[in-house]
Design a protein around this nucleic acid. Sequence first.
DNA 1: CAGTGGTCTAGACCACAAT
DNA 2: TTGTGGTCTAGACCACTGG
Lengths: 252, 252
Amino acid sequence: MERGDTLDPLDRFTALPLYQQIKEEIASRIQGGRWSVGQKLPSENELVELLGVSRMTINRALRELTRDGLLVRVHGVGTFVAERRRHASLIQLRDIAEEIREAGKTHRLKVLELERVDADRELARAMALAVDSPVFRLVAVHYQDDVPVLYEDRIVNPALAPGFLDADFARMTATAYLVSIIVPDEMEHVVQAVLPEPRIAAALEIGRGEPCLKLSRRTFKDDDVVTSAALFYPGSRYSLGARYFTDDYRVR
Amino acid sequence: MERGDTLDPLDRFTALPLYQQIKEEIASRIQGGRWSVGQKLPSENELVELLGVSRMTINRALRELTRDGLLVRVHGVGTFVAERRRHASLIQLRDIAEEIREAGKTHRLKVLELERVDADRELARAMALAVDSPVFRLVAVHYQDDVPVLYEDRIVNPALAPGFLDADFARMTATAYLVSIIVPDEMEHVVQAVLPEPRIAAALEIGRGEPCLKLSRRTFKDDDVVTSAALFYPGSRYSLGARYFTDDYRVR
DNA sequence: CAGTGGTCTAGACCACAAT
DNA sequence: TTGTGGTCTAGACCACTGG
């Protein structure tokens, strides 16, 4: 404990749990700048003494703050104020069929292509496979009440989803199907605004001058690429959005 | 315990912590459909007996699965398989100045407007204030190595950030400033692809036909709107992206 | 080696909900 | 009243890190 500042006055008669009070005290010190980035916190045992609570209670507070991104813990070394207070917010992306149905509308899918192809250089790179490896490809358009709202161009790793070509995408979107087969352990997203290529503009029934949201998504399992998808949303008909609670100090 | 299925074979000699093994077993039952939505799980005490571990260990596993969105717990009632497995992914948005600096480039801000205005009907609605209420407005362009990459049009609630007009935005972006004043408890985001208005196209030094990402963001504190911002990213120069680990069973 | 965090236990008391 | 989850304790053993 390098600073001689008294810690906090825990209130044992309030409804607020002790671990919560500890979390708030520590978070407020970090957010107020009284504890700076990289600074080492008192050890669990020191906090036990300072606060007069059991180590399990301290441990829970520190563990949750770590999960919330405010702290970094290193086994055998100590607990530190996390770097880069990446004030970050998160946008949630949902399965489009689910979203359309929850809005009380009808979802329909038109499959344009569903086939096995050999990966060219660009595809091979996106899928982290060798050039000329066989992959599955799905090109489809999603309709909301018969209006096209999403153009999907997806490549799938056949080793991880061998039954993909036989799936019934009218019943279950490709995204949902793949998640039911393999729960990914990592994802990558990029959102861009683009003008659509002629083929995509035609499929979405929009003009070539109308901007589209392009969402590129890759999912991973054990460092293998499960699928790589390019999703095009016409700007005039669709927007990605989310409202959510920043529970506790979720900052990440 | 309504089902007579044996539970899991905990391995006490592996490196994997018991609570992790329990999490995985339960998650796999849910994802495999063997436990269906809304189904009640055995109580903590029942699981203590079934698995031969202490209640704190069970509690940790169930608590984390709840935080990950797979379970719902109701005090005094029980633990249930959560509804709507909204296969969702999250896109992380960061403070642009931080991102530019981390990429080793220079961030610069040009303030176009910084003033107090009276809210018209649309503004009042966005800010959840009365029409003609005074609000603060910031219009600015962010440059990366002298290339414009973001047009920001922001309204701020003067009751919550009275010193906003005097802030030094060259030192700290508006986002960072506001977060340092008030930690929001809720956020709302919408991403759209749009064609820029002439004024915005000019400020970003792009053609009118070039698509932009429009990110609309509102942040809330205790049901008051802290700020409402429209952020325009030229499609050719910027993309929002993130790669992250779907830690554990984070699916939400 | 000593100090750290990671995990686990076997109890305990409480607030809450259903009966 | 009974059973539930929410929290807390005072120990314990371990793996990891640093000197």
